[in-house]
Amino acid sequence: MKTALICGISGQDGAYLAKLLLSKGYKVFGGSRDAQMSSFGNLNHLGIRQDVETVSISINDFRSVLQTLQRTKPDEVYNLAGQSSVGLSFEQPVETLESISIGTLNLLEAIRFTGQPIQFYNAGSSECFGDTGSEAANETTPFRPRSPYGVAKAAAFWQVANYREAYRLKACTGILFNHESPLRPERFVTQKIVAAACRIAKGSSETLTLGNINIARDWGWAPDYVEAMWLMLQQEQPDDYVIATGKTCKLSDFINVVFKTVGLSWQDHVRIDNSFFRPTDIEEGHANPTKAAKELNWVANYSMETIGQIMVEEWLKKLDRNN
Rank of each mutant, 00 (worst) to 15 (best):
T207C: 14
K202E: 00
E206Q: 11
I200R: 04
E180A: 14
K192V: 05
R199M: 07
A201P: 03
H179A: 15
K192M: 09
F177A: 02
T173R: 07
S204F: 15
A166V: 14
T207Q: 14
I193Q: 03
G203Q: 04
K192N: 03
A166R: 09
N212T: 11
A171T: 00
C172K: 01
A166Y: 11
I175Y: 01
E206G: 02
R187A: 07
C172F: 04
L208M: 14
P185R: 14
R168C: 10
G211Q: 12
I193F: 10
V194E: 00
E206H: 02
L210P: 00
P185G: 15
A197S: 12
E165R: 07
N212Q: 12
G211H: 12
I200C: 00
V194W: 06
V194D: 00
T173W: 11
A196Q: 09
S181T: 13
A201N: 01
F188H: 06
C172A: 03
I193D: 01
K170A: 10
R168G: 11
E165C: 09
V189Y: 11
R164D: 05
N212L: 12
P182H: 08
L210Y: 02
E206P: 00
T209Q: 06
E186R: 14
Q191M: 13
I175N: 01
S204A: 13
Q191N: 08
T190H: 11
R164W: 02
A196W: 13
P182L: 06
T209E: 15
C198K: 05
K170N: 04
E180Q: 09
R184V: 15
E180L: 15
P182A: 08
